[in-house]
Design a protein around this nucleic acid. Structure first.
Lengths: 213, 213
DNA sequence: GATGTTCTTGACTGTTTGGTCAAAAACGAA
DNA sequence: TTCGTTTTTGACCAAACAGTCAAGAACATC
């Protein structure tokens, strides 16, 4: 009787619901990441998920519902490494851990990163609230942590917000601009140790950049 | 008699052609940057350019023709600052100039940067040739320059390709993720001196990162 | 001002798109 | 097996879409 895509008071989903929802979210991630909300088509997402379009719409009534569901899934992952930045730890060691975590995320979920990038490039119409509240708050908190480290002379003097932006930019670049990196580097980008090599280079640059002289 | 959008053997364009082509390219830049090739509509581009859709199609016969024209315009600008990196100059000073040039580009043509980013995120289907030839060649050449500087001990040891990627990532981030930066920083991102402050922070981080200890 | 050319657009076409619906198929508890 | 529920889909619809066309309006050259 009830539709499966009611947002509140969900009953336990059936196995079929769990499997199909996951297949649709995965397909949506892929297609939305490549073409954005407007460029993606439900036909392509349904085909990727291996089902008919009406069946997809049985689980997500509207295109935007699916898009928002995919986006929300991504946001949680996206934010979590920043929480771990510990004011009590060693500054350089904490930043190393943060960068490593972001590089791993970039390697393991490149589509999530690209989806997020596309949403921002489009002007962030669907996540402006999140950006200007939750994200803003945690960034402000972590910026104060970094600021304190700088004030103590344990980090080179740098504006903490711009440092955070730089780390986001560099780490996400490896996911978002993957096609460009592959085109420029050729085989080298596909070789086994490439991810580690990239992480090594990024750590070398940024950590050297924030270490006081 | 002749159509104005023939690609070869162009005669001198009339004033009307010059004005309308420019209006269309500008509108295309704006709409394609926001929504990508598939997400953009000719109706919206025509409306933005202040003309009817058939009139737009009189200047560019197909949507993809316009997209490629906009993209090509962007690529030339995008590449030019890299040419200026002079092997004979002082390494840190050369990198400073390159970063400043890229930051200015990011500030002055954010839509161009976002358009480019969207194309790469979509898998670079329309510029793969450019990336794997022209871009690849010049990057390889400049990487050798940086490598020589490192070998001479005038730069901290860093993989030159990853250094270039990092500079691209950070500088373009200020254009591509503008919406996020504004949401996170609030008023501060709109204040007069913000661009210079950002450039200062980026220079501080990267130049400190590449300076040998 | 006549005339050939360039520019512009309303009306249109065939296709793709997001979304609906009714009915069939598969499922699950008894 | 029975029967109510969940899941699936072919057929369909209205709107949006890229692109066409013929004819009119503006322009330029004489």
């Amino acid at each position: 009787m009830d539709l499966p895509n009611v947002s509140a008071a969900d009953e336990v989903p059936t196995r079929i619901q769990a499997r199909n929802r996951e297949a649709i979210l995965s397909a949506g991630r892929e297609v939305f990441a490549r073409h954005g909300l407007r460029g993606a088509t439900l036909d392509e997402i349904a085909r990727t998920a291996g089902m008919s379009k009406p069946n997809l719409l049985y689980y997500f009534r509207r295109k935007t519902d699916l898009y928002k569901a995919v986006l929300e899934e991504v946001l949680a992952d996206w934010l979590s490494p920043l929480h771990a930045l510990d004011p009590e730890g060693d500054p350089v060691e904490e930043l190393r851990r943060y960068i490593v975590a972001k590089m791993q995320l970039s390697n393991m979920h490149p589509q999530a990163s690209r989806l997020f990038a596309g949403e921002i490039i489009a002007g962030a119409p669907n996540i402006h609230g999140f950006l200007s509240t939750e994200l803003r708050d945690i960034v402000a908190r972590k910026a104060r942590t970094i600021e304190a480290w700088v004030a103590q002379g344990r980090l080179a003097p740098i504006d903490p917000h711009h440092l955070i932006f730089a780390i986001w930019a560099i780490t996400q670049h490896y996911a978002d601009f993957d096609a460009q990196i592959r085109a420029v580097l050729g085989d080298r980008a596909g070789r086994p140790g490439f991810r580690e090599e990239a992480a090594e280079a990024v750590l070398g640059l940024v950590l050297n950049g924030v270490t006081p002289r």
